[in-house]
Nucleic acid binder design. Structure first.
Length: 243
DNA sequence: GCGACAG
DNA sequence: ATCTTGTCGC
């Protein structure tokens, strides 16, 4: 029998201690202006199956994908999903997918929370601090914080996501702002956007709203989602470079 | 004790 | 996240 890569049950106390240590290194400032190529990260996992990730290298100026890198972690090596500890499950395979790319990105767009997390260290923030790259978190549902008010139904509408107390954030009428609830498509369930690392609160929202989005999800993330699922079903490995 | 809970 | 049938709309 092989030794599991993590304690069983997982050592959440140690994981929490690491989060509390890393949060001190988070930089909540930056405008993303120097970002030419970003990597969008998403993963796919099926019951009892491997965890497969796709990293889409996106050319911001050209508005298209340059390449996609894949990586997988076998079932027995996958850390369990525990709310608040997602990075311990998915960050390893994301880092491997980034290694599969032919060129390094200068920023990350991650499917999950940035600082909108109980301890300020959502997966986008954890990956940003680990790689030292600017990062933004884009989640499809809420983990931490409450909308500061009602959200308009039109595309582009946004309201601050606030908490009475938080490890990181900026001043908010009712406490600390940890992110935004943003409606990227009219009358469609909103996204939860938050700064990851080396990006300011306002810039995090602008980054997401500036990206092309045929659907409610920014195009780079939508492609990462599609590729992760396809890689899972077809066993894709390594990387693909687009013409 | 009870409800909430990224993917 | 995944599972899973039908249904609505371009």
């Amino acid at each position: 029998m092989n030794t599991p890569p993590f304690p069983t049950p997982p050592d959440l106390a140690a994981a929490r201690a690491l989060q509390e240590e890393l949060v001190a290194r988070v930089e909540l400032a930056g405008d993303w202006s120097g970002v030419r190529r970003l990597a969008a990260l998403d993963a796919s996992i099926r019951r009892g199956g491997a965890l497969v990730a796709a990293a889409v290298l996106w050319d911001v100026a050209a508005g298209r994908a340059l390449e996609v890198g894949f990586a997988r972690v076998p079932p027995e090596a996958v850390f369990p999903y525990v709310p608040g500890y997602l990075s311990f499950r998915e960050a390893p395979v994301y880092l491997a997918a980034l290694e599969a790319l032919g060129r390094a990105p200068d920023a990350l767009l991650v499917d999950g929370q940035g600082i909108a997390h109980p301890r300020g260290l959502g997966i986008a923030t954890h990956l940003g601090v680990h790689t030292r790259l600017p990062s933004v978190g884009v989640a499809k549902s809420r983990l931490f914080g409450e909308p500061a008010g009602p959200l308009e139904e039109d595309a582009g509408a946004a309201v601050p996501l606030c908490a009475a107390s938080a490890a990181l954030g900026v001043p908010c009428p009712k406490g600390v702002q940890v992110g935004w609830v943003a409606r990227t498509r009219a009358r469609v369930k909103p996204l939860y956007v938050s700064p990851g690392h080396r990006v300011g609160m306002r810039a995090a929202l602008e980054v997401v709203l500036a990206l092309p989005r045929p659907t409610k999800l920014p195009e780079p993330l939508r492609q990462a989602h599609l590729w992760a699922g396809r890689a899972h079903r077809e066993g894709l490995e390594g990387r693909l470079v687009f013409g």
